[in-house]
Design a protein around this nucleic acid. Structure first.
Lengths: 203, 203, 203, 203
DNA sequence: GATGAATGAGGATTCATTCAT
DNA sequence: GATGAATGAATCCTCATTCAT
């Protein structure tokens, strides 16, 4: 007879979500394996059936979190819409992606923190290459801005720097939202943000 | 003849700077007391002559870092300049404050991370009340924006939300600068940022 | 039609052999249950259908290994041959027994190690009573030597001690053979060993 | 004022002795760090001030144990004495070295066990190269035997194999002595052993 | 019978903190 | 005042064993 069958992949994802919730709540460093086990309603040892180590959970969480986002941005870029619409969509996508994360938005802090440090371990260096991720985002958005400049919608402005500013704006809003969710209505903020930037960049 | 006197206060500040450098480099959690001692060129035990605990160093570092900034903002606000000039000064002050921090800018990540979590310990809750700090910043900047609206320089816009967006923008730029200092010319970014916002808010 | 019958005893022996191979290769302490399962090509849980515990496997392996050897020695002793022939046969039997073990000769190390320690557990104390086993061997061989002395083939010598020396000699050769199989030709060593001892004991 | 001074080297040696005692008693695998700490009368954490890891203690113990022995053998060989005297001295030195080890003779079992396994880790492979150690011993003793053959004291015999047999003999005696110290009078055994071998090898 | 997912007791190791000098 | 040796609480991870299927 076949032994108990478990959808390992589904359970792994569930475990990942539990881990991310704990990381978001306590921070990676202060999160204990037992906390994750409790959150997931399983035994401590079981975690190791799905992840090699605490670090590995974190790495997997990073990919889980970042994963779809990249695909979404690509989709926006390759759409036939104009730069202003793309601009708005980028903002909405970022905000929506974060809101969808719900409970574990706070994990962003740890991703930033890990992504920013100069890692001694080559492995981590490679995995948390946020530097490159941001570099790419800036390029993507700069292209949209350059398009806008080319077709005369935006005035002549440093596109790369403007992109950095928009990204910064969104990250900074998320930061404030994590800190004080009731204070910041992200959806409204997204609209105002788009408004300010589009006016600010307009010829 | 006076006995060997050590300026405790000066040494404490030196120690604090050493600690912040280490925190910035490795993150609070991964920073070891021995790292701080080595950075400061003293013995591990000596740290405890100046600080009760590792946590206390962190708390003191927070105040050391935030300290003057608040005063600076107050000065800007109470100056007789117009809202646009104030706006520009707020941006410059934030960027300059960060640039002045130099080596230990990376500690911002830890302040954010600590400030954001829901602390179990009441003590920490009180000390790292970033929520309140940001709340206050938003109010200060919103006031400037409202002034601008009142005198017709800025169009009717949600001042509080705009303030949040500006703060987010600055934080987000610092984030990118910590991550990739060579990529982001903060001074130039400050100018572009001011430019975009002032145009974006302009009637 | 008989239901799927598994020869439990045969499978148990096969499992035992797999276990011994693993013990020989990695040592008892470093051998994992999963290693044994893999070596035997079965599931981890199945081992427990045949053995109560890892310790029990080890105990059973010990008996499996030692088992026949005792019978062989008894046969030699009760044969009508002379002491010199018996002497040679004891050496050959020991070496052959070891060579027959083949892949799992290395398990001897663990038997010695376990047999030698002062066990906290009474159970182990009783089971791994190597002390007694060796005591008995010494007596058996001493008897052969005394026979040799009695009939004038061997000179007057401490028979018990000489027996210990011969046993030591054989164990020590096995040790070297386990360590460096290509270096020690055990069969040749057996002959030289017999030669040296018989000459050395000869009147 | 100078802080508490500790002779780190002396304490390390004392700790090593305590560790070896525990290893001898329980075996490396079953020895716990806390056992070592208790035996040494210190705290668990203190061990790590002197040794990187449990493995490192074991490696250091190996060198501590083997260390002088090699020098002793070299001294014997380079002496101007005849092969028979050298032969006797080799036996005595081995036995005396072991007797001097006293309480921690049982650690030999672990050295053998570790030295014999095929190590996955290159590091261990290199450190516990018992294979080479034994190879060298066999060569040293074989030389003595060849000397004896050359000057006509010993008969034509496979010197290398005879050396292996002598070494085996000594190891095997130690084994029995570890197992049952009261049963084996090692000093007497040494004399009988020398006697048998010298007669056995004699022309 | 057979299996492997789940478990938690156990153990090596880390590191903030203490304190004798 | 300064120090670093000593400490043990805390934590990650291993793995023998259990048991539902």
């Amino acid at each position: 007879m076949s032994p108990r069958t478990v959808d390992k992949s589904a359970k792994k994802r569930a475990l990942l979500r539990a881990s991310m919730k704990v990381f978001a709540r306590k921070g990676f460093a202060k999160a204990k394996m037992i906390d994750i086990a409790n959150e997931a309603g399983i035994g401590k040892g079981t975690i190791y059936e799905y992840f090699r180590s605490k670090d590995q959970i974190f790495i997997d969480a990073f990919h889980f979190f970042i994963g779809d986002l990249e695909a979404e941005y690509d989709k926006i870029l390759s759409s036939p819409k104009g730069p202003i619409e793309k601009f708005e969509e980028i903002i909405d996508t970022t905000i929506d992606g974060f809101l969808a994360a719900g409970d574990f938005g706070g994990i962003l802090m740890d991703f930033w923190a890990e992504g920013i440090r100069n890692h001694q371990q080559i492995e981590m260096e490679h995995i948390f290459n946020l530097k490159e991720v941001y570099q790419k985002y800036r390029e993507i958005i700069a292209e949209v801005i350059e398009d806008g400049i080319r077709i005369g919608k935006f005035r002549e402005i440093d596109a790369k720097l403007s992109a950095a500013i928009l990204i910064g704006c969104l990250d900074g809003l998320l930061l404030q939202s994590i800190m004080d969710p009731k204070m910041i209505d992200l959806r409204k903020a997204a609209r105002v943000c788009a408004n300010i930037f589009i006016s600010g960049l307009a010829r």
